[in-house]
Every structure is written in structure tokens, then in C-alpha cells.
Simulated scan of single mutants.
Amino acid sequence: MPRDRFKEIMKYLRFDVRSERSTRIITDKFALISQVWNRFIDNCISCYKPGENVTIDEQLFATKVRCPFIQYMANKPDKFGIKFWLCVDVKSKYLLNAYPYLGKDETRPQSLGQHIVMHLMEPFLNKGRNVTTDNFFTSVSLAQNLLSKRTTLVGTINKGGPDIPSYVKNLTLDLYDTKALKTENDQCLLTVYQTKRSKNVLLLSTLHDSVHIHSGDVKKKPETVMFYNSTKNSVAVVDQMARRYSTRAPSRRWPVQVFYNILDLSAINAWVLYQEINNKKIRRREFILRLAVELSNILEEPTREETSLQRSIALEMPATELRKRRNCYQTHCKNKTNKVCDLCKKPLCGRCNLSKIFICHNCK
């Protein structure tokens, strides 16, 4: 695509109807791209059946655009960005559901953590699955609410939270010791594990009835801690994959930046679906390159018709290479090349090539 054509497309790229924007933005801060976002999430939910374990965590999409809900997080590599809550399948790393953080909402009946988990897990409730969360989301009320809908919860819980008894807040055990506590109705199991001499970790679980400690482990990690460690990093892996191969480009409009995030996440989901449907593994970088070529070929207008001979050559015979670089046989061209025409075997540079395979002017 020519550069000027690309700039023209980016100049007029919009994701909503501008005449209706003023009325929709009153009730929806995400109105400039909410229609595209909702279609993307609906496709994510309908195209995949998740496994028994899912994880919910945050993603900070790094950007410094002017946006009413931009976030600053000091513990992230990129301090500024748009925050998304992601629900990811633990085994395949498929994005199941996502939700943008649009700022404080005083009309919300529940706490933010509980509201996010219930919203993201709504399509997957009453199926016997388990969700893993960190201490921002985990609470006893959330665990009981999920358990009433046949969904278990495993997650770390804040030591200073209102659900924690006072004697547990000041509890100090010997190094690598474990203490298990249950609620009055025996629905929730609280595990206290002393990771360091001055620090312990609290985990809340409705999946485990008791705590089993593996005898071969030097640190004597309980079963709840090992399960949490094996399922907590799914969202971080998806965020890392999206950062490694990204379509992101400079732009000062936040809907365009959100659209880049949609493209990155949808490429990950397409890669997971391709592997599971075809039952074979492929490198994600190779898959993304092939996906980009196929998507561009759909919209590409053919400039000439290739003969059956050229198609057979393209499939069977790769472009021949010379041992030494020679001048291109075109009189107006002064380039040197080690490639030749596939039909007449004359030296031919890539600039004078007329096809995806190497075909010169005379052979065309």
C-alpha cells in the first residue's frame, strides 16, 4: 500500500456514527468504539468453549493518548495506559471475555473487584468451572456468590481486609509452615502459608476441602498455593504475547489505540483456534505473517492474470539463484542481482519483476 494511501485511511478511520455520538457518550464513555468492541467480545465468547480453569486479571495497554479514563500504574513497565480486565483460559491462553475500566462509577451496587469478576464470568457460570484471581478481586462474599452458581474460586486475599479475623492478621508461623481455617458454613477454606520469616500469604479457596502438603517439596508448599501458582499467570502471558508481536502504531486518538489492542488480541485467539482445529502446532510469528498475507489477498485487486504455466512454476519451482551477482538484463536498469527469470533464465532484479514469481517482460 502506498504511504499516502495509508495516511488517508488513518485520517478518516472512525468506529462510530459521528452524528449520534453526542447522545451516546452521555451514557457510554466507550461510545467511540463500543460497537466494534462489543462485536469482538461476542465473537470471543461464541467461538470457543473454555476448559475447567480460567483466570481474571488486569491488562494495561500502554499509551499516552488524551483519554478521560487513562490510568497511571507505577508497578507496570509502561506507567500510563488504558486498563482492561481480561478473562483467559488457563490451558490454551484464549481470551474469553474482556472489559475496559472507564473510571469510578458511584452507581455500582457491588465492589469493583466483585463486579468485574461477575461480569466477566457471566457467560460461563453454572458449568462447574474454577476462576483464579488475585487479592484485588478475592473476597468471601464473591466466593459465596460464585459458589451459589456452581463456580469455585481460588485466589490470594488481602491480609487487612474486613473478611479476615483479627487473630489471623497478626498470625506468624514458623518458616514454610501452613495453617488451614474454614468459615462457619465450611464453604470457604483459608490457607495461611509462611513464605518468609516476616511474611505470610493468605489464600481463599472454595475448590479445596482440605490442604495437602507435598512431602517431596523443600518449601512444603500446600496444595492451594501450588494450584494458584500454576493458574495465576495466564493473563500476564497473553499480555506478553500481545506486546511481542503488535500492530500498534503511533496515533493520538484513543479509539485507534483500542482498535490496535483488538487486533493483537484477536490474532492470539485466531492462533489458538487454528492450532486446536487443525490439531497441529505453528509458531505464532509465522501464523501472524501468513494471516496478514491472506487478509490482504482478500481485498487485493488483481492487476493481471497469471497463466497456468506460471501458477505451476510458482508451486513447483522456486526462484533460481546465481552464484555471482550480475547486472539485470533490462537496459534501463542498473541493479545487480543473483536472481534469474524462471522461464528464460536471464538475470532479473526484484524491481523489474512482474509477478510474485520471477517473470521478465519478454516472458510475460
Rank of each mutant, 00 (worst) to 15 (best):
K79R: 13
S205G: 07
S210W: 06
G350Q: 15
S230P: 04
T307Y: 02
D264T: 01
L348M: 08
F137D: 00
L32F: 14
R253E: 11
T331M: 12
R39K: 15
R14M: 14
V293W: 10
V256T: 14
S230Y: 12
F61W: 08
K345N: 13
G155P: 00
Y99F: 15
R14T: 15
C67K: 07
L60V: 07
E122W: 04
V17C: 15
N200M: 10
L112Y: 01
P100F: 04
K11V: 07
R5F: 15
E305D: 14
I41T: 07
L146E: 07
S308V: 03
A319E: 14
A319H: 13
D209A: 10
C352G: 08
S312Y: 12
S230E: 11
E300W: 08
T151L: 02
D89E: 05
D42W: 12
S230D: 08
L171V: 08
N126H: 12
L181Q: 01
V17D: 15
K83N: 02
Y48S: 05
Q59F: 06
V168Y: 15
V238F: 04
Y193A: 06
D174W: 13
Y72C: 11
F136L: 00
L13N: 03
K346S: 10
T152L: 02
S46P: 01
G113T: 01
A267T: 11
D89R: 02
